[in-house]
Amino acid sequence: MGQHGEKARGALLDAAEELFAVNGIDAVSNRRVAEHAGTANHSAVAYHFGSRDELLRILSTRHLQETNRRRTELLRSLPADAALPDLLAAMILPWVEHLASLPVPSWRARFVSQIRNVPSVHAVSTDAAAASPAMEELVRRTHAAAGNVTPSVLYGRSSILGGMVLSVCADYEARVQDGVEEPNWTGVGYFLIDACAGMLAAPVTHPGDFLAQPSSVYLL
């Protein structure tokens, strides 16, 4: 694909991310994405991506290689007996650092929060994140470091944490855009690390199977 084609493709991805973040996935048509990208070709999404599902798949995993590289780097720096907060930092900080690197306004956190409501797309992005060897190791070691918490409770807590991290980041991204907050993504990251560590390792007062299937704080 030539330089012009790559530029057009990038403009479509940027336009789609913004529109989906603000309006939701189902409320935005391919034609509206094309118009927002500044093209008169209303079939541009089909031309560049083949289908809407492919657009969403590419958009949802757009920066995954970068965050996985950073996650691997942080994981390699950890000692064998790393504490729970340090393991969570290796999991969460690459995502937060990526958000901090984006211009203001940015839409990434709000877009990723939206795709959690689209099961097929969310499954693709979560599977892609989980396939990272670094993430697999971090999940295993994080659960082991949580202490005497049963797997079923860990799965339930992890599913809550995934939504919590994305919701906090999406809300903060909007507040930065509105000028309510001065950007301090590092502070947000460590707040989330502390909150996640506290929840994962909290005492269990009533054992039960909130979730039967494994889940984790998978982030893009």
Rank of each mutant, 00 (worst) to 15 (best):
91 M>W: 05
97 E>N: 06
40 A>Q: 11
55 L>T: 10
139 V>N: 00
24 G>V: 07
139 V>H: 07
113 S>H: 04
110 R>I: 05
140 R>H: 05
175 R>L: 08
183 P>E: 13
68 N>C: 04
178 D>R: 05
64 L>P: 06
39 T>P: 09
206 H>R: 13
37 A>M: 06
114 Q>E: 09
26 D>L: 08
129 A>P: 03
202 A>P: 09
96 V>R: 03
50 G>T: 09
63 H>E: 15
83 A>K: 03
30 N>C: 14
71 R>P: 00
175 R>I: 07
159 S>V: 08
90 A>R: 01
29 S>G: 11
58 I>Y: 11
165 V>M: 07
94 P>M: 12
85 P>C: 04
135 M>E: 11
76 R>L: 06
7 K>G: 01
80 A>Q: 06
91 M>E: 07
116 R>W: 01
66 E>I: 01
46 A>H: 10
119 P>W: 04
191 F>H: 07
54 E>W: 14
87 L>E: 01
18 E>N: 12
168 V>H: 07
172 Y>L: 12
211 L>N: 02
47 Y>M: 04
128 A>L: 11
199 M>N: 05
159 S>T: 12
46 A>S: 13
179 G>P: 09
59 L>Q: 13
155 Y>C: 00
176 V>I: 14
130 A>D: 04
10 G>K: 15
122 H>V: 05
181 E>H: 14
136 E>N: 09
8 A>V: 15
22 V>S: 08
12 L>F: 11
97 E>I: 03
54 E>R: 15
93 L>C: 02
25 I>Y: 04
26 D>E: 15
12 L>S: 12
91 M>R: 07
213 Q>L: 11
33 V>C: 10
6 E>S: 07
199 M>S: 00
123 A>C: 11
54 E>Q: 15
26 D>Y: 02
115 I>T: 10
54 E>T: 15
1 M>H: 13
113 S>I: 03
166 L>S: 08
97 E>V: 08
142 T>P: 01
22 V>P: 00
52 R>M: 05
23 N>T: 05
25 I>W: 01
156 G>I: 01
182 E>A: 15
86 D>S: 12
75 L>P: 00
18 E>Y: 06
61 T>V: 14
184 N>T: 01
197 A>P: 01
48 H>A: 13
17 E>S: 04
41 N>D: 15
204 V>R: 03
65 Q>A: 14
51 S>T: 15
78 L>N: 02
127 D>G: 10
52 R>V: 08
105 P>V: 02
208 G>S: 04
41 N>R: 14
186 T>Q: 14
66 E>S: 12
14 D>F: 02
179 G>M: 08
59 L>C: 10
91 M>A: 08
175 R>G: 13
215 S>H: 09
138 L>M: 02
91 M>T: 14
195 A>Q: 08
175 R>F: 05
53 D>R: 13
106 S>G: 11
121 V>T: 15
86 D>N: 05
37 A>I: 03
98 H>C: 07
186 T>L: 12
133 P>Y: 13
193 I>R: 05
1 M>F: 09
28 V>N: 11
87 L>F: 02
121 V>H: 07
54 E>N: 15
28 V>P: 10
185 W>F: 14
83 A>Q: 06
24 G>K: 11
56 L>M: 12
